[in-house]
C-alpha cells in the first residue's frame, strides 16, 4: 500500500514496528513504532504519557515527510 501511495505522487511515511519488513516491502520514509499490537501507544503507561509517546512518533513522522530522501531511510527516534 505504501508503494502505491508513493507511486501516485503523494509523499508517505510508514510507521511500523518491524522496520525490516517495511524495508523489504519498499517504503521510502520509515519511522519505528513501539510494538506490534500498539504501534503508537503503550498500555503500561498512563493515558497522558501514552499521548506524549504518540506525539513524539508523529512529530518525527512530520519531520520525515519534510526531509528529502534519495533512498529508503529509517528515521530513528531522537
Amino acid at each position: 500500500m505504501v508503494k502505491e501511495v508513493e507511486r501516485a505522487g503523494i509523499p508517505v511515511v510508514h510507521i511500523c514496528t518491524v522496520t525490516p519488513i517495511s524495508m523489504t516491502v519498499g517504503a521510502n520514509r520509515i519511522v519505528p513504532a513501539i510494538a506490534i499490537p500498539y504501534p503508537l501507544g503503550n498500555p503500561t503507561k498512563s493515558m497522558e504519557e501514552e499521548k506524549q509517546i504518540r506525539r513524539k512518533i508523529l512529530l518525527r513522522s512530520l519531520e520525515a515527510l519534510s526531509m528529502e530522501v534519495s533512498e529508503q531511510t529509517i528515521f530513528e527516534m531522537k
Binding site: V5, I10, V12, H14, I15, C16, A33, P39
Partner: peptide, 13 residues
C-alpha cells in the same frame, strides 16, 4: 489525489 491530500501517514501493526 482527487481530494487534494498532500501527505499520507500509514501505520502498520
Amino acid at each position: 489525489l482527487y481530494d487534494k491530500v498532500g501527505a499520507v501517514i500509514l501505520t502498520s501493526t
